[in-house]
């Protein structure tokens, strides 16, 4: 079994209301020096395939479902 981490994040320039709202709230709790907070989604996918193939499969999953290329970019890391 191969475990891959699929990381889905917003493209540069796409506003992240959840991130900025969280930042505001963290600051209201007294946390100082926060430069930015960004939300990122990670899918941990376990596949019955060798590493190389698992990575290719996961990338295809991103293209077909996990990422919308208009607002998101993806990266796949084999553990």
């Amino acid at each position: 079994m191969t475990v891959v981490d699929v990381r889905i994040e917003l493209k540069k320039g796409v506003a992240d209301p959840e991130g900025s709202n969280t930042k505001k709230t963290l600051e209201s709790l007294g946390f100082k020096g926060i430069d930015s907070v960004r939300t990122v989604k990670v899918f941990e996918i376990t596949l019955d395939a060798p590493a190389e193939e698992a990575k290719k499969h996961a990338e295809e999953m991103c293209r077909q479902l996990l990422a919308n290329p208009v607002i998101q970019k993806y990266s796949v890391v084999v553990r």
Partner: peptide
């Protein structure tokens, strides 16, 4: 074959 637009979070964040 893949989306060419997105309906993304409201500006207001809610």
């Amino acid at each position: 074959p893949s989306p060419t637009a997105a309906l993304y979070n409201n500006d207001s964040g809610r």
